[in-house]
Simulated assay, not measured.
Amino acid sequence: MSALSDIEKLNTKRGLRQLFSNDELSIGKTLRNVNYELRLEKLQEELIKLQQWVTTNNKKVVVLFEGRDAAGKGGAIRRITEHINPREFRVVALPKPTEEEKGQWYFQRYVNQLPKEGEIVFFDRSWYNRAVVEPVNGFCTEEEYQIFMGQINPFEKMIIESGTILIKFYFSISKDEQAKRFEDIQQDPLKKWKYSDVDAKAQELWDVYTEYKKRMFKKTDTKIAPWIIIKANKKGKARLEVIEKLLNIIPYTPKNEALLNPQEIVITTTEEARNEPNII
C-alpha cells in the first residue's frame, strides 16, 4: 500500500480535525501533526507485538526514564503504554520513602518493583534519584550519596545477569525550555498540581543539577547499561524517538524492519552528548 500524499492526509478525518482545531489555519502545522499521529500509531502497533513477545517468552524488561523536571518523561510513558495490555506492564513512580524505608537498604524498595517473568516495568524516575535529585536538594547525606555511587554499577550488573533487559533513557531539555514548561504548567488549572517545591527551585539550581548529572553519566554510563540520550525540547519528536529506540533495542519478533529503519535510528550516547552544548 503506497503512502498517502499530503493532500490525501489533509482530506482524512484526522487531517480535517487537526486543520480546524488550530487557532490559525496552518497547512504546514496540520501536516506535521498528522504525520506525527500516523507515525505514532504505527509504532504503537509494534509496541503491542513487543509486549506479546515479552509475555510469550517470559522475558523481564525494565525501562528507566530520567531527566530534569518537566522534561517530558511522563508524556512519553503515556504514549508507550496507551494501547498495550495493562495487565502485563506497570508504571512505577515511587513517592518519597517512608520512615521504615529510610532505614532499609536504599535499593530495597526498587527491588520490590522489579518485573516478574513476562512483564515490563517503566520507572518514571528510579533509583537514580539518589544520583541527582537527592544530593542537589539535600535529601540525602554525602555519605549516602557516595555509598550509592559505589553500589549502583554492581546493582545493575546483578539485574542484567538475572536475565532482565535494562534500558536507561535520559530526557535532556534546555534551561529556557524548562522555564517555559513550568510557566505553562502553572497557568494550566488541570496541570498545576504537578508543580512541586522541587520544581520551584529547579531553575535556581540548574548548574548544580548539571554537575551531579555529569558525575552520574561518568560513573554509570557502562558498556552493559549505557545511557541513551533523548533530545526532548520538542515533545512530539522525543516521544517518537524513545519508542523507536525501545523497539530497536529489544529483540522482539516479528519486527517490522521497514517501519523502524534501524540504520537511520541514531542512539545518542553520553560521550557524544558531552560535546553538544544543548544537552545539559
Rank of each mutant, 00 (worst) to 15 (best):
F139L: 13
P97G: 05
N129S: 14
E117Y: 06
V132S: 14
I120V: 15
E119W: 09
Q108V: 06
E101R: 02
Y106H: 07
E119P: 02
F123T: 00
R90N: 13
V111G: 00
R125V: 04
L166T: 08
F122S: 06
Q113V: 13
R109W: 04
P135A: 05
G150W: 05
T164R: 08
F122K: 06
E99G: 01
E88Y: 15
V121W: 15
F171Y: 13
P135F: 02
F123W: 03
E161D: 14
K157T: 04
I159C: 03
I159A: 11
E161Y: 01
G150Q: 12
T164L: 13
Y110N: 09
I173W: 00
Q146N: 07
W105F: 11
S162N: 06
G163K: 03
K96L: 08
G138K: 13
E100C: 00
E143T: 13
T98A: 12
R90Q: 14
I160S: 08
I120F: 02
G103W: 02
R87Y: 15
C140H: 08
K157Q: 14
F171P: 11
I165A: 13
F155M: 13
L94D: 01
K102F: 02
F171I: 15
E144Y: 11
P97M: 12
P97N: 03
G118Y: 03
L114C: 01
Y170T: 14
M149Q: 10
R87S: 14
F107Q: 01
Y128E: 05
G138T: 15
I152D: 12
F148W: 07
I152N: 08
F122C: 02
A93M: 06
V92G: 03
W105A: 02
D124T: 04
G138E: 09
G103Q: 14
T164G: 07
I159S: 11
K102P: 12
A93T: 05
Y128R: 05
C140N: 09
F169R: 01
G118C: 10
V133Q: 06
L114I: 11
M158P: 07
V121D: 13
R130D: 07
F171D: 15
A131S: 12
V92Y: 06
I160L: 12
E99V: 04
W127M: 00
Q113I: 07
V133Y: 04
E144R: 12
I173V: 15
I173N: 00
K102I: 14
I147V: 05
S172H: 02
D124C: 13
E100A: 04
Y128Q: 09
L114N: 01
K102D: 10
D124K: 10
E134P: 11
M149I: 03
I152H: 02
Q151R: 08
R125M: 07
V92R: 09
I152E: 14
I167F: 10
G103D: 06
M149V: 00
I120A: 08
N112F: 04
T141Y: 03
E144F: 03
S172A: 08
Y106V: 15
N153A: 10
S172D: 05
F155G: 10
F171H: 13
G118K: 11
V132Y: 09
A131E: 05
F169V: 02
G138Q: 11
K96Q: 11
V91S: 00
E142N: 02
V133N: 11
N112G: 09
T164H: 14
V136N: 12
N137I: 00
